[in-house]
Design a protein around this nucleic acid. Structure first.
Lengths: 353, 353
DNA sequence: CTGAAAGCGCTTACAG
DNA sequence: CTGAAAGCGCTTACAG
C-alpha cells in the first residue's frame, strides 16, 4: 500500500517496531545513536506513516469540542453542516465532534468550555461571543495544557490559537461596496446598521464606505440605526427614503427575517425604482427576497467551510501531528444573485457526503 | 471506537467473522437461514462497518483513472488541484488517482481509456472530448464490466454513468447575463464567441440572451465570431465597437490569455466608458484584468470541486459500496469581482490539506 | 455452507 | 534503552 511499513523498516534496520514508534513520536528513552540512525533512514526513504494503521492502533477516542454562541441562528446551521461533514470524514479514525448550544454571554460560554476541559477534550474549535481578554487568557491556558485551539468565524487574536478560519470582515464590506456600486446607476446609498453594534459590523461599514467613496457616480448618504422588529424597521426605512434625496441603494447589516421583509416592503411600497439592496449571508429571508428580486445580491462568507476546516485542522494536527502552515484561513466571499442562488443551495456535500 | 465490531457480533451470534463478511458483502455461499439471522441482527443494531479496518484488510490497491482532454489548459490545473486533494484524503485507504494528458480528439481519448481498462482500473472519472455516441457505448461497456464511471465538467448523458459533476452551462450563461445586466446602465451588449463552437458555448449564449432580453435597459446587439490570436482579436473588437451603436458591454466566451488582453486593449483604446466585460472561468489572464479593472467580473464553475467530488464519489462507492443519491451534482457558479478575487485565490485546500 | 487463522500498519502495555 | 507480543476492525485465502 503505502511505500514502506514499519515492519519492513524494522527488519531493514534491525530494530523493533516499538523503537521506530518511539523515535517517530519523540517519546524519548531511545539512545541518541539509534535515534539518529532511525531518523536518517526514515528521511532518506521519505517515510510517511499510514493514518489508517495509526488510528486503528490508537485506542483512545478523540473528542473535538466546538463552542459557538447563538447556535439557534440560521447561520449556524450552515456551519453545523460543515462540522458534520468533517465529523463524517474523521469518525472512522476514532474522532467525535461535539458542540454545545451556549447562551449569549462571554461568561456562560467560558463556563461551558471549562466544563469541557474537565471532561477531557482533545481539541477545541471556538467562536467567541466577544473576543476579549478573558478569552485570550482562557485560550492560552488551554493551549498550555496541550490541547490545540482553532478559532472560527470570530477570531481571538492575541493568544496561542493555532489558526483562525473565517473571513476578514473589512474585506466583505468592500465586496458589498463593489456589488452595490456596480448595480446602482447613480445617486446615493444608505447603510442600515444592526441594533447591536459589533466590531465586525464596524469593519464592514468601513470597507463598504471606502469602496463606494472610490466611485464617482454614487455616494454614501449615511448610516442609520437598526430596528428590532417589523414595524419599526418598516417605519425606519420609510423615513430614510423620505429623508435622503436620490436614494437608490441600501446596504443591510441586519439580516433577520423580519427586518429584511420590512425593509423590502417599505422599498416596494415607496415605488422607488431602480433600487438595489445588498445584504450579508444567506438566511432563508435573504434567499426569498433574492428569488423575488427585491434583494439584488448578498455577500456570503462560506460558513460551511468555516465549520468543515476548523475541524479538519484539529484532526490533521492530532492525527498527523502536523501544524497548519498559516494562522489565517480565509473562507470565500461569495456574491450570490438570483441566477446563481440555486447553485449554492445544491452544493455537493449536502446530498451525499 | 465504532459501535460494534464484527468480532463482538460474531460472538453474540455464534458465527464466524468470515460468515458475517460474506453476508455483508453478498458474497454468496451462506445458507438463507443464517443470512436472514445475520442481516436482521445487523439491521437491529445499525451496524456500520469501519472503513479503517476495511481498507487495512483489503490488500488490493484501487486505481482511479481520470481521463480529461486538453490537460494543458489552465482550467485543468484547478481540476487537478481538486483531484490531488481527494487523492490525498484517500491515499491511506489504498487508493491511487492517475490521470493522463490526452490529446485533442475523441478517438485518442477513447484509445487511452481502453488501454487503462486493460491495465485494470477500479473506477473511471471522465470528461469526454465530445459526448457523442462513441463515448456512450464505451461508458456502457465499462460499466457492464463492473467498473463505475463518473463524468465531470462535460457530461455523457445517455449511458450508465453513475453521476455527473459539473455545471449546467445554460445556467452559467444566465448568471453572466444577470451580472452584465446589473453592471451596464443602458445600451447594448455584444457576445464574443469562441473560434470553435462547442455545444456548451451555445447553451451559455442561450441562457445569457434570455436574461438580457428580460431587462428593458439593455439589449444584445449580436454575437460575433471568435479570433485566434491577439491581432485578429484586437481588430475584431475594434470593428465591433465601431459598428455597434451605444455598446457598453461584452460577454466573452473565449478566455485565452491573448484574446483577453487584445479585447481589453481594444476597449481601453477606444475610450468607451463606462464599459463592462464579463467572462467565464478564472485563468491568469482573467485574474489580471479583473485586478486591473478592465474586466468587471467572471463567472466561475468551481473546477476544484469538479475534480474533488468526482473522485470522492468513486471512492465512496468502491469503499462503502454506496451509490450517490443523485445523478447530477452541480458545482457552484461563483461571481468573482475585483474585491472578492483574493478570497478565491486563498481557498483553504491549497495551502494545507 | 461455514470456521479458524493470518495479516493489513500501526500503537500499547509489559517485560527485561 | 530496547524487544516481543497482542490487538485495533476488517478481509482473504485455506481448510473442511
Amino acid at each position: 500500500m503505502g511505500q514502506y511499513s514499519l515492519k519492513e523498516i524494522a527488519k531493514e534496520l534491525g530494530v523493533s517496531r516499538g523503537t521506530l514508534d518511539r523515535v517517530i513520536h519523540n517519546r524519548g528513552g531511545i539512545g541518541s545513536e539509534t535515534t539518529d540512525r532511525v531518523q536518517t533512514y526514515l528521511q532518506s526513504i521519505g517515510y510517511k506513516p499510514n493514518r489508517v494503521g495509526r488510528s486503528l492502533a490508537r485506542m483512545k477516542e478523540m473528542l473535538l469540542y466546538v463552542s459557538f454562541h447563538d447556535t439557534k441562528n440560521e447561520f449556524f446551521k450552515e456551519i453545523q453542516a460543515g462540522l458534520k461533514a468533517a465529523e463524517n470524514e474523521i469518525a472512522d479514525f476514532g474522532f467525535k465532534v461535539q458542540f454545545e448550544d451556549v447562551s449569549k454571554s462571554s461568561a456562560s460560554q467560558i463556563k461551558c468550555i471549562r466544563e469541557a476541559m474537565r471532561n477531557g477534550m482533545s481539541g477545541l474549535a471556538l467562536s467567541p461571543y466577544e473576543p476579549d481578554a478573558a478569552f485570550e487568557e482562557l485560550v492560552d491556558e488551554i493551549v498550555k495544557s496541550g490541547v490545540p485551539v482553532v478559532t472560527f468565524n470570530n477570531d481571538v487574536v492575541n493568544c496561542g490559537r493555532m489558526a483562525y478560519v473565517g473571513i476578514n470582515y473589512y474585506t466583505s464590506g468592500r465586496v458589498a461596496g463593489e456589488v452595490l456600486a456596480k448595480s446602482v446607476k447613480s445617486g446615493s446609498v444608505a447603510i442600515l446598521r444592526r441594533s447591536s453594534s459589533y466590531f465586525q459590523n464596524q469593519q464592514r461599514i468601513t470597507g463598504f464606505t471606502e469602496v463606494i467613496d472610490s466611485f464617482e457616480h454614487i455616494q454614501v448618504a449615511g448610516s442609520f440605526g437598526g430596528s428590532a422588529d417589523y414595524d419599526s424597521a418598516y417605519k425606519n426605512t420609510k423615513r430614510i427614503i423620505d429623508t435622503v434625496p436620490d436614494l437608490h441603494g441600501l446596504l443591510m447589516l441586519n439580516n433577520e427575517s423580519d427586518i429584511i421583509t420590512a425593509t423590502c416592503d417599505a422599498v416596494s411600497d415607496s415605488g422607488l425604482k431602480p433600487f438595489d439592496i445588498v445584504t450579508f449571508d444567506l438566511p432563508s429571508g435573504c434567499q426569498r427576497e433574492i428569488s423575488n428580486g427585491r434583494i439584488t445580491a448578498t455577500v456570503c462568507q462560506d460558513p460551511f467551510s468555516q465549520g468543515y476546516y476548523c475541524v479538519k485542522i484539529l484532526f490533521k494536527y492530532l492525527l498527523d501531528e502536523c501544524r497548519p502552515t498559516k494562522s489565517l484561513y480565509s473562507t470565500r466571499l461569495d456574491v450570490i444573485y438570483k441566477e446563481n442562488l440555486d447553485s449554492y443551495n445544491k452544493e455537493l456535500y449536502r446530498s451525499f457526503f
